[in-house]
């Protein structure tokens, strides 16, 4: 049952990702990417990472993709969909490089290294991704990185405002 759900979600995620890359219109691309993020959130749930599944939807589709769609509409990129046709040479080089990279990673994964099946540690894995255990880790072991994150966000806010501001 669980593997059935996994294969459905995996097929969905790969399909939406491919459609996103092939789509000419940036807005439709963004919609496909949002669908892809939902599939990934469901996969996180399958891995018992409940808090991150919720954050995936809230942060990625709720904040980042809204920002992307906002910018696409703000810039009115309708005429940009007719960018000049892609150079065939570059496309072929990309396909060869990507296929080579994928073959390399697949070989590394399947030829050895990782264990073939089953969780290594199953005890306590069910409650690993809950808000309680994540909160304990973030405000305990990872307190300093957590505080530094707030600094990064502050700098990003100021940077975004300064960059997007109209020069007076």
């Amino acid at each position: 049952m669980e593997s059935l759900v996994f294969f459905f979600l995996a097929a969905f995620a790969v399909t939406t990702a491919v459609l996103m890359v092939l789509q000419r219109s940036p807005l439709v691309s963004a919609i496909y990417l949002i669908a892809n993020f939902f599939a990934l959130a469901a996969l996180y749930l399958l891995l018992r990472a409940q808090l991150l599944a919720v954050l995936q939807i809230v942060v990625y589709t709720g904040a980042i993709m809204v920002l992307v769609v906002f910018v696409i509409m703000l810039l009115n990129l309708a005429d940009e969909t007719r960018l000049r046709p892609r150079i065939a040479m570059r496309t072929w080089i990309t396909i060869v490089l990507s296929a080579g990279f994928l073959a390399e990673v697949m070989y590394a994964l399947l030829a050895g290294g990782t264990p073939a099946h089953g969780p290594l540690v199953s005890a306590g894995a069910e409650s690993l991704g809950t808000v309680e255990s994540m909160g304990g880790a973030l405000f305990g072991t990872y307190l300093l990185p957590f505080e530094i994150t707030s600094l990064i966000l502050l700098v990003a806010i100021l940077g975004a405002v300064v960059l997007a501001k109209k020069k007076g």
Binding site: V59, Y60, I152
Partner: peptide, 24 residues
């Protein structure tokens, strides 16, 4: 999840925060 360690998920949490900053 497979190693039973919270460290990976904490790293993903920070990666999401950095991704949000990067998007802005």
């Amino acid at each position: 999840s497979f190693l039973g360690s919270i460290a990976g998920q904490a790293l993903v949490f920070f990666a999401m925060a950095v991704a949000a900053a990067e998007a802005a």
